[in-house]
Structures are given as structure tokens and as C-alpha cells.
């Protein structure tokens, strides 16, 4: 199982990526899996234990996300 965050555009994805880096939260940028969307583009893979912290960062910084998914 892997956790993905999807974004409306890569700008939002890159914004979150740099915030995660600042906070020392490990993440991996990956192509969006086809099961989640047929649009090409980036998504972010994260670890279970970081989910709450990441959700807070997204909220506090008003990062546009399509959603959090586990597949």
C-alpha cells in the first residue's frame, strides 16, 4: 500500500514539496498512478505516520490538493 497526494497543478505540488523538505518530512515525487487519475503529472508519496502533520501543513499554507489517497 502507498499513500499519494494529488494536486490540481504542479505548482501546488512543488510548494508542498519544499515545505515538507523544510520540515524534514520525507516524501517522493512520483508520476500520478492511473488508478487515481488519467491526467499525467506529479503526485507525492508519503509515509502513514506523517499524514496528520502533512494535512496540517496543507491547511496552514492553503496548498491546493485534489486529495489524499491510499492504494
Amino acid at each position: 500500500m502507498k499513500n499519494y497526494i494529488l494536486f490540481p497543478s504542479y505548482n501546488e505540488g512543488l510548494k508542498l514539496a519544499s515545505l515538507l523538505k523544510e520540515e524534514g518530512i520525507s516524501y517522493t515525487i512520483a508520476p500520478t498512478p492511473r488508478q487515481l487519475s488519467t491526467c499525467c503529472g506529479m503526485s507525492i508519496i508519503y509515509k502513514d505516520e506523517d499524514e496528520d502533520r502533512i494535512k496540517k501543513i496543507v491547511e496552514d499554507n492553503k496548498i491546493g490538493v485534489i486529495g489524499f489517497y491510499t492504494i
Binding site: Y10, L14, G41
Partner: peptide
Amino acid sequence: PELYDSVYLSQEDRADAMNYFNFVISEVHG
């Protein structure tokens, strides 16, 4: 996505800075 996941993202102990190159591939046609 599946090919990149199985070939690249399955590797262990990759440098964090490879995220830039993951990004370029993810956005290769974008």
C-alpha cells in the same frame, strides 16, 4: 507511472535530490 514505479521508485536508499528528476519524469509530457 507503473513502469517508473517498478524500475525507479522501488530502489532503496536513493538520494533525496532525485526528487527533482522524479518530478521531470512525472511532468515529462506536461
